[in-house]
């Protein structure tokens, strides 16, 4: 643990009856980084964020956020902002009421920034929150999450219903504001390709377990797809760990991890084509191969 560690989880577990929603998760979050929390539907992303934000209690394990257990702890909670996928607001609230009440909860709230974001997302301030579209509701969450400037901000699938333009606006504003006001951001998302370049560090959760905890740059170079004649590729792959295998006729494509530069040259020299693997493909392969383990 370093001085920059703001979240420390050891053996964190949350059980619902027979289901282990979070299973023995141990990881750390460092200050002022953008994290990606990736995983399939029902993998445990939201439960994990509920635990980190003190909205649920762990069944087992230790958890410290800003040095303390988060549940019922004002010192911790006032530094957090959690934008949920389906945030509920009081029934008679209008959009402007949400933005007006936000500074009660977030001491770093920047009203000017919020106003600018309202313009960017073209939000109708006077409309009742019950009447706005799904995308506009997501935009409200995004604005609260950005303008709160909380030291630790969670976005849980913040883009539901947001069109491509609005999503790009979100990513751009997040990057620009993060550069000026560094803080820790956890983005939970399925749209991995869209956010891949924004992330500094990636956590992949599958069936409650953290199966990957790695810097984005390291991941980017970690896997390679080898394409070529089946015999040549198989001979080269040998006993390596194979993430994914595909083939058609005499051609085969195999995804492996951890190729060194000399090995790459050797592969190219023997007529194998090397193709990069995107973060999204890597996560798909990883979560699939851990499925097979259980089958």
């Amino acid at each position: 643990m370093t001085d920059d560690t703001i979240v420390q989880a050891a053996g964190l577990t949350r059980r619902f009856g027979d289901v282990l929603a979070v299973d023995d998760a141990s990881f750390e979050l460092q200050a002022d980084r953008i994290y990606g929390l990736l995983g399939r539907n029902g993998a445990g992303k939201t439960t994990l964020m509920h635990l980190l934000t003190g909205q649920d209690f762990p069944s087992a394990g230790a958890l410290e956020v800003f040095g303390h257990a988060p549940a019922e702890n004002a010192h911790v909670l006032q530094q957090l902002c959690f934008i949920k996928e389906s945030q509920r607001y009081p029934d008679d609230f209008r959009v402007k009421h949400v933005l007006r009440s936000a500074p009660w909860f977030f001491e770093n709230w920047d009203a000017d920034f919020a106003e600018q974001l309202v313009d960017d997302f073209q939000l109708p301030l006077n409309r009742r929150i019950k009447k706005v579209s799904r995308g506009q509701l997501s935009a409200v969450g995004v604005i609260v999450g950005l303008a709160s400037r909380a030291p630790l901000t969670f976005f849980d699938e913040p883009y539901l219903g947001l069109d491509a333009v609005a999503r790009q606006t979100f990513y751009d504003r997040l990057l620009a504001d993060y550069a000026e006001h560094p803080r820790t951001v956890v983005l939970s998302t399925h749209l991995i390709d869209e956010v891949a370049d924004l992330l500094e560090h990636v956590l992949v959760i599958d069936r409650g377990r953290i199966i990957l905890d790695e810097g984005a740059d390291e991941l980017r170079e970690s896997a390679t797809t080898l394409v070529g004649a089946r015999a040549t590729v198989d001979a080269f792959v040998g006993a390596r760990d194979v993430l994914h295998r595909d083939g058609i006729g005499g051609l085969t494509s195999v995804t492996v991890t951890g190729l060194t530069a000399p090995e790459r040259r050797e592969a190219t020299a023997s007529g194998i084509e090397l193709a990069p693997v995107s973060l999204q493909q890597l996560v798909v392969h990883l979560t699939r191969s851990s499925e097979k383990e259980f089958a």
Binding site: R33, Y171, L175, A176, A179, E180, D197, L198, L199, E200
Partner: peptide, 17 residues
């Protein structure tokens, strides 16, 4: 680095690297 990050739409820490 922040200008590079915004232009290429990448994490500022990566641009700094």
């Amino acid at each position: 680095t922040n200008e590079f990050a915004a232009f290429h739409r990448i994490n500022p820490a990566t641009a700094a690297k």
